[in-house]
Computed example of a mutant assay.
Amino acid sequence: MSIRLATSADAAAIAALLNTLIADRDGTALNVSVSSDEEADYLRRLQQGGLCLLAEEIDVPLGFQSVEKLGPELGEIGTFIRQESRGLGVGRLLLEETRRWAQGKGITTLLAAVAAHNERGQRAYRAWGFTEASAGLLETLGHAPDSVLLEFRTD
């Protein structure tokens, strides 16, 4: 398995993976599919201070993880793993690389907003070292009340 920086050239593969998860209502609160063009635009925006890493095995995407910078020391993380690739350490490897990147950018805290009904996602983030964020932080960021906000210290 390899982990690399995703580029707009990966948009079609990432959109396909994401759309499979959305269609199956599998581990995401998203409910509208994304086009390759929309994903390419998102990846280009992330190049302006964010990150998207792609995990793959022989050119087959296993999962991806993105971070949008919310402030000088704060980023919001999203992780999407192909169903067949779960439990293989993909998310943990992505987080290790994301953590190194965040430390280099001065980001000390990563936040994950996970849908309240997504217990598997919450378990995964907790297994990777995320803990419950303060209620005040959830309100400050304006996340939906049916989200669970988890935080991870990168230091």
Rank of each mutant, 00 (worst) to 15 (best):
N118I: 03
T108D: 15
V90L: 03
R123I: 07
R126K: 13
I107D: 12
T108H: 14
K105W: 08
W101V: 02
T109V: 09
L93T: 06
G129S: 08
G89V: 10
L95P: 09
L93R: 14
L110A: 08
G106H: 08
R92E: 07
A112D: 10
G106K: 04
A112R: 07
R120S: 07
G91D: 07
K105N: 00
G104K: 04
Q83M: 02
R126D: 01
G104V: 12
A112Q: 05
L93S: 12
H117M: 06
G129C: 09
T98C: 09
K105C: 07
Q103C: 13
R92I: 03
L95Q: 13
E97W: 05
G104F: 01
G129Q: 04
V114N: 03
A115R: 05
G106R: 14
E96P: 12
L93N: 04
W101G: 11
L95G: 00
V90T: 13
E96W: 02
Q122I: 08
L111N: 12
A124Q: 02
I107A: 14
G104T: 12
E96M: 12
R92D: 08
E96I: 04
R86C: 01
A112P: 02
G121W: 00
E97R: 14
G106A: 12
G91I: 11
R120W: 04
G121V: 01
G89P: 06
L111Q: 11
A102V: 06
G121L: 10
E119H: 04
V90Q: 12
A102D: 09
A102M: 00
L88V: 02
G89F: 03
Q122C: 10
T98M: 02
A116R: 02
E97N: 09
W128N: 09
A124V: 06
N118T: 05
W128S: 01
L94Y: 09
W101E: 05
V114R: 13
Q83T: 14
G106S: 13
L110V: 09
A102T: 02
T109Y: 04
A127V: 12
L110F: 05
G129Y: 11
Q83C: 03
R99V: 15
E119C: 01
A113V: 07
L94Q: 05
V90H: 14
L88P: 02
E119S: 04
K105R: 14
R92W: 05
S85N: 08
T98R: 09
A127T: 11
W101S: 01
W101K: 03
E84A: 15
G89Y: 00
G106E: 11
G104E: 09
A124I: 05
Q103I: 14
H117L: 04
A115D: 15
E97T: 07
N118Q: 01
T109Q: 08
G121Q: 11
W128E: 11
S85E: 12
Q83F: 06
R92T: 11
A127N: 14
A112E: 02
W101I: 07
G87Q: 10
L110H: 10
Q103G: 14
T98K: 02
W128D: 12
R92S: 05
I107P: 15
G121P: 01
L88W: 04
V114Q: 00
W128T: 00
W128K: 03
A124M: 10
Y125K: 05
R100T: 12
Q83N: 13
A127G: 15
L93V: 07
G106Y: 10
Y125N: 10
I107K: 15
L111M: 15
N118Y: 08
R126C: 05
R100Q: 06
R120E: 00
R100M: 07
E97G: 00
